[in-house]
Simulated assay, not measured.
Amino acid sequence: MQRRVFSLATGGFLSLALLGGTALAQTPKPATLRVLTHSSFELPAELLAGFEQQAGVKLQIVRGGDAGEMLNKLILTRAKPVADVVFGIDNTLLQRAVAANVIEPYVGPAAQRKAAAGMGETADATGVVAGVVPVDHGYVTLNIDKAWFAKAGLALPTRLEQLAEPAYAKLLVVQNPATSSPGLAFLFANIAALGEEAAFDWWAKLRTNGVKVAKGWTEAYYTEFTRNGGTRPIVVSYASSPAAEVFFSKDKLSESPTANLFLKGGVFRQVEGVALVRGGNPAAREGAGRFIEFLRSAPAQQALQTTMWMYPAEAGAPRVEVMEQHAVEPTAFDNPPAAQMEEKGRAWVQRWTKVVLK
């Protein structure tokens, strides 16, 4: 019999001959590699198993909740780290991770190759900031239910400000930025494009116009969005969501029932990265480096497109067909400077809560 093993060098699978179910050569017990991730981390089990065999490690995936909760866990345990490598620090959290001194620079091959999207405005030529290697990127934006708008005969808004007008009353559902990363990203984009005062004036008008606030993306998309039986035909979601609708459709749709609405002030680019954890197990350091390289390998960059629904960070990495056809990237986005997000983010959320919920 044979065992298939993923090879980082070839980007494919190798075969190890086994005799009578026993390996020809005895191998030492694999070391444990602790990987802290957010709850949305997902890659095919076969791919992860192949990495384990090729790298000689046993993965221990530690899920830390959403990205913000994950970073909090890393900070609270920095005296005795719970992981050796962390995936899911994004450009909204990077400055906080650096300030907390919980990550160490990685300078291997993946950190030397140019990424399709960098970690922030202070990124070097490869897109790396403070040793955090970009793995994927995506866009928080507005999605619309095409059939609902066609039936209602209502024109799609062309400006963000129109969503506060009577014609669009009670049509929008958003996520609470205090409890949801896409909700926070959407708020950041609003402020970056409109300015702080104008953005909160707009939110006050949205409240009067009947905006619906959900705790998180799942509630907004699968409960409140008209596509899934709700009453709101406009939802804050992702640029890749229309592609996911096609991919998971039971009827094998050729056209997505939803579409992106790329409005000025309504698009935020998120970049996720992977980094070494400061104070991680020294015996796992080699395996941690291999995991970073693995996440930027061709098989992982392909797989994450239809498991995590993000765009690959590796420059020139091909898009899978469903993403190529149904998840066109926006030509513009609005991100505040990273330092501003870190410095003012909490105050912005508190102000949003007072304006919209209280």
Rank of each mutant, 00 (worst) to 15 (best):
M1L: 06
S7L: 10
L8R: 13
F13Y: 15
F13D: 13
L19R: 14
P30K: 08
V35L: 12
Q54F: 11
Q54C: 11
Q60P: 07
G65Q: 05
L71T: 05
K73A: 12
I75H: 10
T77K: 06
R78V: 09
P81W: 06
L93W: 00
L94A: 04
I103H: 02
Y106I: 02
A125P: 04
V129N: 04
A130V: 05
I144T: 09
A150E: 15
L154C: 10
L160F: 13
K170R: 14
P177Y: 00
G183R: 05
L184K: 15
L194D: 08
A199R: 06
D201N: 14
R207S: 06
N209K: 09
V211E: 08
A214R: 01
K215Y: 05
N228E: 04
R232M: 12
V235K: 01
S237Q: 08
S240E: 09
S249F: 03
L253Y: 02
Q270A: 13
G280K: 02
P282W: 05
A284E: 11
G287L: 10
R290Q: 15
P299T: 13
Q302M: 14
Q305K: 11
T307L: 08
A313Y: 07
M323C: 05
A327P: 07
T331P: 07
T331F: 11
P336V: 01
A339H: 08
W348L: 01
W352S: 04
T353E: 15
K354P: 00
